[in-house]
Design a protein around this nucleic acid. Structure first.
Lengths: 301, 301
DNA sequence: TAAAAATACTCCATAGGTATTTTAT
DNA sequence: ATAAAATACCTATGGAGTATTTTTA
């Protein structure tokens, strides 16, 4: 059976064109080297070397095989280093599901931090609603979730990335739009635009809970957020919506964001992963995230 | 030490994701297979497989290494087949030195015949004078010579490809140009254009010998053939030259070729090679040449 | 005749086998 | 309870060593 040994020996002999010197180089005796080469030739069914006691020459087959043997050994080295780099999380890919709101500040900052240390891991990101994230994580469709107000069950772990104030999004023409900050209760009479509850139950409860604690039940005038939050509608129809502050970074024309006063009402964004996920790239991403948190790279600016 | 055995075993296990089934497939027992994989992991310094008694999964490193291992094994197969094809003369290259006169019929016909059976051998051809051919063959600068009237010494073998009549090349305006055939002695009073004797001594002797047997000593009026035979000069100056008949296939404007009558005065073209040349492609070319001779593909048309 | 490959043989490392235990579902 | 991997132990093939012979330039 052909083994790498044969290739290594053959390359040495082909380079030295001298069995004794090649044996030296390989730290072995000359007879077993000769035997191994003979075995290789038998295995291939063709002469690779023309030996006389005075010179050793490559045959055409030998010269062709030398190229191939070198390529094979190189390929093996690459395989080895790929495996080791993959084990260190330095190559591979990560599929990341994220909440729409993470698009503005959190995800870009995470990406920058991670890419700086792991340039050869490709990040495949997909926006999705919270309700899809856990099943996607569970099934392995994604490796990590970057979620706003995530629901986290037992089989998952998470790391809090940032907390940010809630803002009310409303038409610039609205009387309250000019204010820097408002009390939530001043919106008690407004119509609210919400998303379908089943897309992110915990976030939905958080927002209606805010209103209730502010002393009113929100009047839900529509449920129309589908892919992302289609905000333009807020300016057209006369309704308001609640969102994390970072959304204000990229508002459509004619919309304003006003911070809700109560500093206790913060919206959390976290990364979530399967506790038992052994992927080194995953671990590496998490520690990059920790680093980013530690360096305050994820805070609102 | 890492061996191909490890790669073969690992690929089998990674494909079956089951040590026992993989062991079956490899016609071996399960424990030594487990041992080999453990050894491989130790060699690489990283886990490749996550085993429980119920399932075997690839780690990231394992998945990366699987790709690399497959590539390595593929590369080895290619190396093996390259060696075997090279041994059969099916790949490689042949450097061929040829006489100018072979360019017209002999070399193209040889090329066609050889390429039909050996499309992956590249032919590198170079025109040269006979005097350069033997040293070039001896030093290995060329593998084969296709020579007109070759001088063949002991260390070389040769195969006669064709014999062809001698023609006289002369200006179309020459009184004899209209004749289909002439006696050489009718050129006794003409001036001859020759090449420097040292470029092809045997051919030179052959041609002057022809004249002497026809009863005259040729009047050499110039020695001006350098690269190829610059024939245009024959039409300009009023001299004649002797050449093999195939040259008539591609005469410059204003020149005519007239066959010399004596059918015994034939010019031979042969391929010449080093007796001890072991190159399979070389052998293959020679047998293609024999085939071409047998099928009369090299004869004048 | 001298340098280098081939041959003859010896030995032991280890690949691979069998029997059994452990483990996780 | 069971299927599958790990462990323990054994065997023998063959890879590598030493001493010697053969070859050819």
């Amino acid at each position: 059976m052909l083994e790498l040994r044969h290739l290594r020996y053959f390359v040495a002999v082909a380079e030295e064109l001298n069995f004794s010197r090649a044996a030296d180089r390989l730290h072995m005796a000359q007879p077993p080297l000769s035997a191994a080469i003979r075995q290789l030739e038998q295995e291939l069914g063709t002469e690779l070397l023309l030996r006389t006691t005075r010179e050793v020459r490559l045959t055409e087959a030998g010269s062709a095989f030398l190229d191939g043997a070198r390529r094979t050994l190189t390929e093996l080295d690459r395989a080895r280093s790929d495996a080791q780099r993959a084990a260190a999380g330095e190559i591979g890919q990560l599929r990341i599901g994220f909440s729409w709101s993470a698009r503005f500040e959190t995800l870009p900052a995470l990406g920058r931090t991670f890419r700086a240390s792991h340039p050869d891991v490709s990040l495949l990101t997909e926006e999705m609603w919270n309700a899809r994230m856990l099943p996607a994580l569970r099934s392995g469709a994604i490796d990590l979730a970057v979620a706003l107000c995530p629901e986290v069950a037992g089989e998952f772990s998470y790391l809090l990335l940032r907390s940010e104030p809630v803002v009310a999004l409303l038409a610039q023409s609205h009387p309250l739009a000019a204010r820097g900050e408002i009390e939530l209760r001043s919106l008690a009479e407004e119509g609210f635009l919400m998303f379908p509850r089943e897309l992110a139950p915990r976030l939905y409860e958080f927002m209606t809970g805010l209103c209730r604690r502010a002393g009113f039940e929100p009047i839900v005038r529509g449920e129309s957020f589908h892919s992302g939050w289609e905000l333009q509608i807020l300016a057209d129809v006369d309704v308001v919506a609640l969102a994390p502050a970072s959304v204000a970074r990229d508002l459509p024309e004619g919309l304003a964001a006003v911070v809700i006063a109560d500093p206790a009402d913060q919206l959390d964004t976290a990364i979530v992963w399967r506790k038992d996920d052994p992927s080194p790239a995953n671990r590496a991403f998490r520690s990059a995230a920790e680093r980013a948190v530690g360096e305050h790279l994820l805070e609102a600016r």
